[in-house]
Design a protein around this nucleic acid. Structure first.
Lengths: 347, 347
DNA sequence: TTGTACGCGTTATCAC
DNA sequence: GTGATAACGCGTACAA
């Protein structure tokens, strides 16, 4: 006597429909090659039994997993969750599942050991890496599925990348400040080892160099609200206050603004602030934040599409998505600039 | 001639080590039952071939997927991503993967059709549902894996739940306002159909009833920054302004504060605001927000643990996690209250 | 158009 | 302690 609760198998459907298992399989995966009559009989039997294919069996047979793995540095960070949403949407349209792994949540002793077990063709059909701090050697073995780097990237890891135009974004931000007359611009950066920070620093340097100005002084943060807040203390301790700060992301900018305002500074009257990312919160910050918009959901979609494209035509493409400046209330003309302008007028 | 790039199989290892495939399997899954000598030989062969088990085959054989599915209403919402981080951590410790699905990202025509295909034992060993708006019928079939409801819950769906103490939290928030002398308290709610909103409304009602006050007037929002901002207009249009607002989450509270401040109101001098959740941003808002702390990572961990516990001992447990009030700057004594207190003193 | 039979790669059950 | 072999459930040559 069989377990009545056992899931129906393809064999049960075949018997009920009076056909072979092969025919049932065909109806399910390629209905057009089977006659109308038998197709209907099979569909009826499927309906009656409540049969659904066993994906573990199908996957083994077809040598594919039906899932893509996303590697994120911090799952709790809203910045990444929007990218994930974009990835997820594209994958679902293809019938693929999204596996998510927090790269920081691995065992602290050997951060890469736990990860490596997941980088295997039998666990995922592809990998989207959103963490630029990983060791490229992690991906350097035959069992590793195709990899696409998105948002951040890993030096030494060849393969397709989908990135925002970080350098242009930072350049636009600084040029905006320069245009407002700011000359004493400070750069609140992410961790110096981070590839994002580096490319944004390049944009800052380019804008200043083009204006014939020396490199901007820096304070190093960690992309967090807290580190932005901490930077306010460091900034206020400086001999000469900058007239504007470009921050490598919005969270640090918001943390910084909170600290500066608590110290009695007015934004933008006393100091202008620019962020990067345009997170939703930025429009509702204590002072609506001028920032660089980065379309995160789109970036996720593109990354997923790029990965899917690798299946048919592997190529180490590099996709750079445009960004744009969003001017809100946290930036205003430099005071010196106003003074100069007034003198010019009265002269 | 075989493909030299083909992944080594257990058979290859067995041949190289001069043992049977069964022995190789044993070394990999239960090393203690095999002799020291052969174990070392097998491990050496594994090393040389670079063999790793094919999980698709193992899963088929063992009738398990090695993954848990999380159903979230909005992957881009930071609120959920922190819960996911908690879930992910617990699962990894057990060697399980986390599958994530955005329930809103399904095809708009039939929101549940796409979802149902994922609710299958061959796709996940268990499901953690974070979306209270789903149809309980979705889970009502034999092929559905064990389900745990977390954070939100679904009326009509029996099974274990892990929830924050929403009613107590709301009650504490309102009692805090009452203690400050506020009597005209408005409730900015989530969608009225949402189970979270309902249980928080119960807490609000309980606090007011205990104080002998009538139910609070409500404005209905959508848990978003935008809807909180929009509520400020509705609020300002009212004949008599409330002296305090309890918001069903922090995002609405922050949106509301932005709108009120833009209209010239001071917080907390003119109006007190309380939120719910204690998202990280709340401490750095234009006015640091008084709110109810909910430990999201812990909630995720507990949900995952509850799901794992179901494997051995299925039971429809309900776990209620405590919350606590975090008082910051957005709440202050009611003006009326101050006046009354002054009069009392002078009498 | 349909059925038969084998293979996907592993683990569990039995013998030895 | 170890080896042979039958599942796990499905897809697909190949034959009919």
């Amino acid at each position: 006597m069989k377990d009545p609760a056992a899931a129906p198998r393809i064999h049960d459907v075949a018997k009920l429909a009076g056909v072979s298992v092969a025919t049932v399989s065909r109806v399910l995966s390629n209905p057009s090659i089977v006659s109308e009559r038998t197709r209907q009989a099979v569909e009826k039997a499927v309906e009656e039994t409540g049969y659904t294919v066993n994906l573990m069996a199908r996957n083994l047979r077809q040598q594919q997993v039906g899932a893509v793995l996303a590697l994120v540095p911090n799952l709790a960070n809203p910045f990444f969750s929007e990218i994930l949403a974009g990835i997820s949407g594209t994958l679902r349209a293809e019938g693929l599942s999204l596996l998510v792994l927090d790269t920081r949540q691995t065992d602290p002793g050997s951060p890469s050991r736990g990860l490596r077990a997941y980088l295997n063709r039998s666990r995922a059909d592809g990998v989207i890496v959103l963490d630029g701090s990983l060791d490229p050697a992690l991906f350097d073995h035959a069992a590793c599925p195709p990899v696409v780097q998105a948002c951040e990237w890993i030096d030494g890891l060849v393969g397709p990348r989908v990135l925002a135009d970080n350098t242009s974004g930072a350049r636009m931000a600084v040029e905006h400040l320069l245009g407002l007359g700011h000359r004493r611009i400070l750069h609140l950066t992410g961790p110096s080892a981070n590839t994002l920070s580096q490319s944004r620093a390049a944009g800052v340097a380019a804008a200043l160099a083009a204006a014939g100005l020396p490199p901007a002084p820096r304070i190093e943060g960690a992309f967090t609200l807290k580190s932005g807040h901490a930077a306010s203390a460091a900034l206020l301790a400086q001999a000469e206050l900058p007239s504007a700060v470009f921050c490598d992301n919005d969270e640090m900018a918001i943390g910084l603004m909170a600290g500066l305002r608590a110290a009695g500074l007015r934004i933008p009257e006393d100091i202008s602030i620019v962020g990067f990312d345009n997170i939703e919160m930025s429009a509702y910050a204590s002072v609506p934040l001028t920032t660089v918009r980065q379309k995160r959901a789109q970036l996720g979609r593109r990354a997923a599409e790029t990965l899917l494209a690798q299946r048919s035509a592997p190529a180490p493409t590099e996709l750079i998505l445009p960004v744009e400046l969003v001017v809100r209330d946290s930036t205003a003309p430099a005071r010196d600039h106003l003074r100069v302008a007034a003198r010019d007028r009265s002269a």
